[in-house]
Amino acid sequence: MTTGGWIVMTMSVGGVVTLFLWCLWKVITSPRETDHLHGAAGLETPDTKEASPEHPPNSSIRGVHQS
């Protein structure tokens, strides 16, 4: 591994770790942020109400705010 390789690796891995930690800090320190933060796969879409007995049509589903 060349010196250039060590520099590129350290900067790249350091960069993504720093970005990840900054996002964690931002989420944790922003008031009520977690109520409005979402990951795609975790969302329950409104059309699943039709299929799931746990969610009667008028219940509000965590993670999706219908407009």
Partner: peptide
């Protein structure tokens, strides 16, 4: 499926960073 109150900027950035 999100509303105007949801944070799309930090959601996108957090998912990207993770």
């Amino acid at each position: 499926y999100l509303s105007k109150r949801d944070d799309v900027v930090l959601s996108g950035l957090s998912a990207t960073s993770a």
